[in-house]
Every structure is written in C-alpha cells, then in structure tokens.
Nucleic acid binder design. Structure first.
Length: 628
RNA sequence: GGUCCGGUAGCUCAGUUGGAUAGAGCAUCAGCCUUCUAAGCUGAGGGUCAUUGGUUCGAAUCCAAUCCGGAUCACCA
C-alpha cells in the first residue's frame, strides 16, 4: 500500500541509536552505582519529561531512592546531577533539583548531531529485526453480509498493530479467518433460492456482499412473518421459532452442505464468490491486506483429532450421552463443551484446530487475535484449553480485545439492518473531504485523478485516525449525524501539516515532484561535526529544541505502541508532533530565516518532521498528500 | 447472580504504569492572513478525576466496598 518499506536486517547495516530516555536510564544506574556502591535497576526510579513550567527536558524522580540511600532529596539530587553532567557532558548540559525532582537539560549539540544524522532518513525510528515471528489475525468476517463500521475498527486496528510490530523489528504475518459456513450462511442461501428469481449482483447492479446481505435481511423478515402467522394460529413463540418452514429449510440446507450435496455446494460457492469479490473491493479501497486467509470450511473439522488426543490425555471428559467437555472450574471458569453428542465440532473446537495449524505452518512465537470484547470469555477459554493441551506457544496466544462501535441509538444490529455500512461510511467520508476541499479552493490546478486521489486520502485518513486514536479496549459511540471532524485532533490536521512542510521544502528547492515521484535533493549544508561538538554553531530556540526532542522520541513511541499493541499511542504522538510543528511554523520563518545557518537548521527540522509524520501515519495506514 | 471491562471539562478523548498547579481537541468567547498553505496559530472561561474509605512522603493511577453503563456465562458462531 505504500512505497517506502524499511528493511532493517538482523545483521547490522546501521547503528541503532539509543533513545535519550534509555541513555538517561542507563546513565542514572551507572552513576548511582558508582556514587553509592549499591546495585540499581530501572525500577528503582522513574524518568519522565520535565513539565514545561520548569527548566530542563528530562526528569529523574528521586523520591523512591531516598529510603535505601538515607540521603536527603537535596543532597542526592545534587550528587547525582553533578555526576551525570560530569560523565555525560555531550548529552546533559545542566541540572536543577526541585523537591524530589532532578531536572536535566539536554545539550543543543546532542540534538543537532541527531538532527544532522537523521533528518533525511525515512527509516528513522524503526527498530532492528528481533528474529521473532508474530501472527496478527483480524477482520474475520461472515460471508452473509457486508462489512460494517465495527469491522473497520477491527481491520484498521489489526493492520496498524501489524505494521507497528514490523517497525519494531518483528516478522509479522497478517491473517484472516473467514466464517464461510454455518447456519447463518444457509439463511441467505435459502432466501436467495426462494426470492431472488435467479438474480445476480450483475443483474441487480449491486456489490456482491451487499447483494447477498439483502437476502440475509430478507430471510429474517420472512422468518419473522412466519413466526407471527404460526403464533396467530395458536403456537407458542418458541414452537413457532422452531417450526417455521424457513428455519427448517435452512437447517436442512446446512445438513446437505455438510454431506456435500452438489447443488448446495454449488450455490454456496457461487454466493460466497460474490461476497469475496465485494470484500476485496472494500479491502483494496481501504488499503488492507492479508498474507494468508483461512476458511472455516477448511478448518472446522480439524479440531476433532485434537479432541481425541485431549480425551486420551485426560484433558477432556466424555459424558454419558457422548458429548465431550472440559472442566475449567478450577481456573475460575465454567465447564465448556468441545464436541456435541452427535460428534460434530463447535466453534471453539475449530479455533483450537486453527491455533495449532497457525503454529505448524509458520512457527510463530506469538499469535494475536484482534476480536471484539464480546468474545473475551471465549478467548480466555481458548487459551486455557490450548495450554492444557500443551499446544506449542499456547501461553503466547493473545486476544487484542477492542470495544464495540455503537450508534447513539445503541448497538448495531445487522439482522435488522441497523448498521453503519462500511462502504457507505467510506463514501460519506470521501464526499465530506471533497466538500471541504472545494470550499477551501486551494487545489484548482489539480488534475481530475489527483483530486480523486486527494479526496480518498483525506476521507480515509480522517476515518482511520478517528477509529485509531482511541485506546482499543474502550468502546466508542459513532454519531453519523455529527460526522467526523476535519479540525484539531484528526487525520486531516496532520495531513495538512505535512502538506505545508512539503510546500516549504518545494519552494526552498529541497524537494520536488517528478512524474508523481517525490525527489529529495540532498543539498542541505549541514553544520560540521566539529562545529557542533565545539558548540560554535546554532543556539536552539525553545520551539526548535522542543521539536527535535519530540522527533527524538519516535523510536521510543514505536516501542511503546508495540508493547501495548496500541496504535492510539502513535496517533497521540503524531498529533503532538504536528501541533508542535505548527507552532514552530507560525513563530519562525523557515525558508526566509534570519540567517543562512538558521535556514539550513529549520529546513532540516522541517524535513525530518515530514519524514516522521509520513512514517508514523503509515503505521496507522494513513497516506499523506504533498498538497491539499 | 458469577466473571471481565469502562466511568476524567458541556461533548470526544490523553494522562509516560504512584510524582510537580490533572492535559488536548470539539463547542463558546477574544485576537492573528501585503511574509514559507488560516484544514493553521495565540489567549480566555470551563474539573468533587462516579462515590466512600484505606495503603504512604505523595493517589486520576494501587486495594476494598458501593453506584452507574457495557460485555459475557449456549450441544449459536
């Protein structure tokens, strides 16, 4: 989906820089050990960014050290500060102690060096390969209805987490399990058979997944009517639900499917084919992809053998009626069925089979499932069963649980058609992007295809950012009336910041477009190492310094986002970076700076900021436009 | 009822894993375009961090109880 990919092999082709926060951590441990002849770890003290109202950039919080050292905060702070500055004079220039806080100032030279070495490195911030492989499973749609807004949160999350892990040096496999069989699929098949008169997506001029989804809704409408009729004829509601002809037909079809009845299989293939075509269009449009797609119709039987093995091992128990269970009461959960009395497998059985298959195919070290929080219990059970069965790396099964996307009216109900359809909302976002862009009137010289691309970039960017900026586990309410903002903490805000930087660089002759490809001129004259070391070059102004400090944190942020499996960490960071840049941009002229030195410095800052914005937005799956 | 998750400004969300006077965006109000893109910038107002108690130098953060909201506890998937 993107042009730039950083491949940083295990064999060091480049030197990986340690983040300031890590340097400070290590240096503090060293200094404390040297000063007080005791051993320390990172957990003995805390490091944070200095609050803006105090002097300094990074702060060592000393309170927790006082007890074991029996020193006053004042004395400890001064001794440690003195030592840090003496031993690491290239990085720390001065310190002050306020209460229990040791505030350290980073030298301009250190930051200038950093800027000088990395300003044009599009891979800045990424980590070296760790030699570990992780699978991220996401999307997992049913093939009886189109994707909705909830799927979009799932897909964006999964895709982004995968990219974040890659940036952090993991070998990542994106996978998808398609729920392509079962009673719900048969429902739309029956409805199509009965009511479609042979219609196809082509004849109805409809997207395949939407076309099939209509018959799923049709089934439920007709089913409801049959129940009402039966109830009117004197049946109880329960009886009616079981005896309705449509339901009986769907159940019969499921049996026929499992037996492999040719007409049913043919219809099933045909309708699923329509759905896949529709899904593919949507995936392509939103820039999602998978390395491997699993189909439930292939995996649903594979659990049976595992059940037999588990039974032999004594992990499972067989009841008198032949059904097979696992007792999880000792783990604080209930008993769970893993195979029906008729010998057929249930949902969780398939998942156990798939978990094993994933491992055997890819030898993954970790298996991440991006699934809504409604399945927290299910995933807990799956992991426990996998552990008890002794499946390889069962303990590294991880459920990345995210909150449901709800409407102001409550939960989305696909059976009633009360959902925000994915394709619809994408269309709306792009239309809104178009409207805003036209109103602002800045792109009158764009070609038609450039405009089209720009609207997609902004519309999708707004939506992805909106869904990713919130911590995954929190549920969110989506208000279609209010739509999504294009100002403030949004994708377009960041995109706009990027476009302005590109504009500055273009005009300063540092960057240009040739046949749609961006070309960077490596003409920036950079201060010599000697000048930087001896401090004969620029003094950084507060906003210049703050920007470089923020840029410096990028690799640390990637690591944090990967550890937490949380793209919102990235979103918050980008926004902060863009906002800082905008203040800088307003305050200080770049191309028309007060001196040539300042001009070069600010062009470097601008270029590095644009690189980090592009790279970090890429981790969220969001493109950035050169002009908007 | 059991288990899990959430509750921070009018609204949407951060809060670096226990640290300094709790921060952003939206909305409201007041300013800033003859200088690199105003989808921007600067400033103001807005808070019982659901409630109560506890732990300690220090709590939005940890513990307990309570209240509110959600999910889940199927021979459904």
């Amino acid at each position: 989906m993107f042009d730039i990919r950083c491949k940083l092999p295990l064999q060091l082709t480049r030197v990986f820089r340690m983040s300031i926060i890590k340097v400070l951590q290590k240096a503090t441990i060293q200094s404390l050990t040297a000063l007080y002849n005791q051993s320390f770890t990172e957990k003995d003290f805390q490091i944070s960014q200095t609050k803006p109202e105090f002097e300094g950039n990074y702060t060592v919080v000393l309170f927790s050290l006082v007890k074991s050292l029996k020193k006053s905060l004042e004395v400890l702070g001064n001794e440690l500060g003195e030592k840090l500055i003496k031993d690491h004079s290239t990085i720390f220039s001065q310190y002050n102690v306020l209460k229990g806080f040791l505030n350290l100032t980073i030298t301009d030279n250190y930051l200038l060096n950093l800027l000088n070495k990395n300003y044009n490195d599009v891979c800045f911030g990424k980590h070296e390969m760790k030699g570990k492989r992780i699978m991220v499973e996401y999307s997992s749609p049913n093939t009886n209805k189109p994707l909705h807004l909830g799927h979009l949160r799932n897909i964006f999350l999964g895709w982004s987490v995968a990219e974040i892990l890659k940036a952090n040096g993991f070998d990542v496999i994106k996978s998808c399990i398609v729920n392509d069989r079962g009673i719900h699929i048969c429902k739309s098949m029956i409805a199509w058979e009965l009511f479609a008169n042979g219609a196809t997506p082509e004849s109805a001029n409809a997207k395949g997944d939407h076309f099939v989804g209509e018959y799923y809704v049709k089934f439920n409408d007709e089913y409801k009517r049959e129940i009402e009729q039966l109830v009117a004829a004197g049946k109880s509601k329960e009886e009616a639900e079981k005896e309705a002809p449509l339901m009986l037909a769907a159940q019969q079809m499921l049996l026929d499917w499992e037996k492999g009845k040719p007409e049913v299989i043919e219809l099933w293939n045909k309708m699923n084919g329509w759905v896949y075509k529709g899904f593919d269009e949507t995936y392509k449009r939103i820039g999602s992809d998978f390395d491997n797609t699993y189909y439930e119709s292939n995996t649903y039987l594979s659990g049976k053998q595992i059940v037999d093995e588990g039974l032999a091992k004594g992990v499972f128990i067989k009841k008198e009626d032949g059904s097979i269970w696992i007792d999880l009461t000792e783990d604080g959960l209930d008993k769970k069925i893993v195979q029906r009395k008729d010998g057929t497998s249930v949902y969780i059985t398939q998942d156990i089979g798939l978990a094993k298959q994933k491992y055997e195919e890819y030898k993954i070290d970790k298996s991440i499932y991006v699934i809504g929080d409604e399945q927290n219990y299910h995933m807990k059970v799956l992991k426990l069963i996998a552990e008890k069965l002794g499946l390889p790396n069962a303990k590294n099964i991880y459920h990345l649980s995210y909150g449901m996307v709800e409407l102001p009216s409550g939960k989305m109900k696909s059976r009633e058609g009360a959902v925000v359809d994915a394709d619809d909302i994408i269309d709306e976002m792009i239309a809104t992007a178009k409207q805003h862009t036209i109103e602002l009137g800045k792109v009158k010289d764009f070609e038609e295809h450039e405009l089209h691309e720009l609207y997609e970039t902004i519309g999708l960017g707004a939506m992805k950012f909106y869904l990713l900026r919130v911590e995954p586990k929190k549920r969110m309410i989506f208000n279609p009336e209010e739509s999504i903002d294009f100002h403030g903490f949004t994708g377009p805000f960041v995109q706009y910041t990027f476009a302005r930087i590109r504009s500055v660089l273009r005009k300063a002759g540092q960057w240009s477009m040739v046949n749609g490809q961006s070309i960077t001129n490596y003409k920036l004259q950079t201060p010599s190492d000697e000048a930087i070391r001896t401090g004969t070059t620029h003094k950084l102004l507060p906003l210049e310094k703050e920007l470089i400090l923020t840029l410096e944190q990028y690799s640390h942020i990637i690591e944090q986002a990967a550890t937490e499996l949380n793209p919102s960490v990235i979103a918050n960071y980008i926004f902060h970076l863009a906002k800082t840049f905008n203040s800088f941009y307003t305050e200080h002229p770049i191309a028309n700076a007060e001196s040539e030195e300042k001009k070069q410095l600010r062009l470097q800052i601008a270029m590095m900021t644009s690189n980090v914005i592009k790279s970090s937005m890429q981790l969220l799956g969001i493109k950035v436009p050169d002009r908007m």
